[in-house]
Design a protein around this nucleic acid. Structure first.
Lengths: 130, 130
DNA sequence: CAGTATCCTAGGAGATACTG
DNA sequence: CAGTATCTCCTAGGATACTG
């Protein structure tokens, strides 16, 4: 199993690269990972280690920070089960779920204008090159 | 005239603090200033120095960077008039204008859930305090 | 398994000064 | 007026190692 860092796949969350990846404009939801976490939890609760996989082996420190921040905002709920080994599940709240709409809107924009964006950049770059 | 840096007023662009200000979650449009610039140009072309005022005297370096990036993405057009003293105007393109919709959607979400957000944070903070 | 604890680095952002 | 040119600072994000 490779822990190599590659760009997140756009298949999982079409248009999201424009939200979460710092290098990609124009959109970004808050920090680098929150929007992706939101999508990962869309279909139900997930465990800490389950979240790491689709997030390309995000380091535990960064995932913890992201989850704490989202929990603080009331976007998700953390449930710790008293078992051994420990089990913790994260699940979207109604508030967190309500974010999916705006997120979709922005995603839709990105997909609808991806070609125009690429063209604009190419034109700008070729113009500033000469 | 005070050049003191204060938080951007929410009156100018309700809900936008959740897009553009790094410290404010959950939303942020790309970088710190792009969304604000978009709003500043909403009602027509503006000059470089005109933009600095509503943006709380953003430094010329940062404004230039922001405008260049937006120009590269095709969100705005830069027009330099051959006069003395020089005059340069920035104006939204159709592509840039099309961003206003998604931006409004996200703004609307923020305003609609501002109370819930504040409550969630207060609850989280008081809980983690004790 | 679900996290902490440390250390480190790149780059976004600002202050200040200067120029065509 | 409309920008560059430098310098500096901060912190989000990552690598790695360890723990209840």
């Amino acid at each position: 199993m490779s822990h190599t860092r590659e760009p997140l796949s756009a298949d999982m969350f079409p248009g999201a690269d424009c939200f979460a990846e710092p290098g990609s404009r124009p959109f970004r939801v808050g920090d680098k990972w929150s929007a992706w976490v939101l999508r990962c939890l869309e279909d139900g609760p997930r465990r800490f280690s389950e979240l790491r996989v689709p997030l390309h082996w995000i380091t535990p420190k960064v995932l913890t920070e992201t989850l704490r921040s989202m929990e603080r905002n009331g976007f998700l709920a953390r449930t710790a089960y008293d078992e051994n080994p420990p089990r913790v599940e994260y699940e979207l709240t109604a508030l967190g779920r309500s974010l999916l709409g705006p997120l979709d809107t922005a995603c839709a924009w990105t997909r609808a204008h991806a070609a125009a964006l690429a063209e604009a950049r190419a034109a700008f770059d070729s113009h500033s090159a000469r």
